[in-house]
Design a protein around this nucleic acid. Sequence first.
DNA 1: GTGAAGTGTAAAGCTTGTGTAAAGGTAGCT
DNA 2: AGCTACCTTTACACAAGCTTTACACTTCAC
Lengths: 229, 229
Amino acid sequence: MYNILIIDDDLELTQLLAEYLQQNTFAVVVENKALHGIELVKQGNFDLLLLDVMMPELDGFEVLKQIRSFSTIPVIMLTAKGEDYDRILGLELGADDYLPKPFNHRELIARIKALTRRVDDLSSFNQVQQLDLHGIKIEDASQRAVVNDVEIDLTGTEFQLLSVLMRHAGHILTKDKLSVDVLGRRLSAYDRSLDMHVSNVRKKLSQLGIENIIKTVRGSGYLFKLDAE
Amino acid sequence: MYNILIIDDDLELTQLLAEYLQQNTFAVVVENKALHGIELVKQGNFDLLLLDVMMPELDGFEVLKQIRSFSTIPVIMLTAKGEDYDRILGLELGADDYLPKPFNHRELIARIKALTRRVDDLSSFNQVQQLDLHGIKIEDASQRAVVNDVEIDLTGTEFQLLSVLMRHAGHILTKDKLSVDVLGRRLSAYDRSLDMHVSNVRKKLSQLGIENIIKTVRGSGYLFKLDAE
DNA sequence: GTGAAGTGTAAAGCTTGTGTAAAGGTAGCT
DNA sequence: AGCTACCTTTACACAAGCTTTACACTTCAC
């Protein structure tokens, strides 16, 4: 699964874009604040960055410059201007590609794929991206979750579920969103499948001494806790 | 030194382009005939291809298709048309980038550099001739795999499979990717050939006392383990 | 309280992916 | 042609793991 981060202050566009990319089996996180976006890249859980050039506070070039000082993540720049100079500057600063708005969605997908074709081979070479919260470490590349050097034997769906929850730690995720992200379908009435997966993940975690990390928010959904209590 | 091949029937443009690129320390070869160009790529002395879309006889898409059947050389398409559809088609056929004519020369350089940044990383990675993991040593040049000074008698395909898996140790490789990399074709429905090769490699390894090194990740692919357990 | 709706989870059912033996096919060699 | 080595296909068994069912429990509104 490909994790894409979008840094763009345009709420409407990012919303649309996220949906479209999700339909094309990419996992998407949207960040509307440039500074916050840099931090997200630092955490290192993304495979590709879509970066808007025109943003208040910090413009895209500055963001790119900062990101390139610590990361080689593939970057596609988005911009409203069609001017040569912008394109060239972006590319020279270390962007991999450039797409002028408004763009054809299919072209975006094609460009993402063209870039990932190259980078895929490279990824095993780059630092492995992993996420570590409350002593639970997950690694997408190998689909492994580890607690105190002990591997948790998760099924693919369970891993996916834990991964989505952890990536959104501290935020409630509705069952409907989880169902779409994890099982790839809308939640329908009387579908208890997701509940079962949550139950199973909890069971496996508790065998390793981890309890109450996935909280139920009755009527709303589930939540991976940020702070222990 | 970077060797660039230009396939384009426009004599005037190619002349200019060649000079410009040479000034920027690239080595350039111009080929005005599409068919002849394919042969040049086959000989394999180029690092990057600039390919014109509009050509008599054979158009650029057809040329790209043929080249992609035997080579992963980075390709930037050049075309007079600015239409979305052309761009997308080119990218989906396996081009890495696309540049509409007339283009800014500095942008061309920037795009070439953006692409080579990625590919350079990759080639230095693939040039690793020897790999040694868990006591399994493989040597690409001689197509040999050795465990404790005992040679494993692998067929060409089996060696290739093991080599790809080991180069991506710790990362899940989808069956589709493995099929492309090892068997040279897309995985099609009910194709069990790859599974058989995995089975055979495992069998041969287990005869030498190595077990559970190639892990099945159900629904995702195979994985050469990084850490023993 | 009482009923309704939401949630936890054991167990059963069922689909699908995978392992592998064996047969079939193909290319290269003598 | 016949042989050999190897790749691919076929066939079947098996296991993994996703979903459904069923029932107990909790929470909340009235």
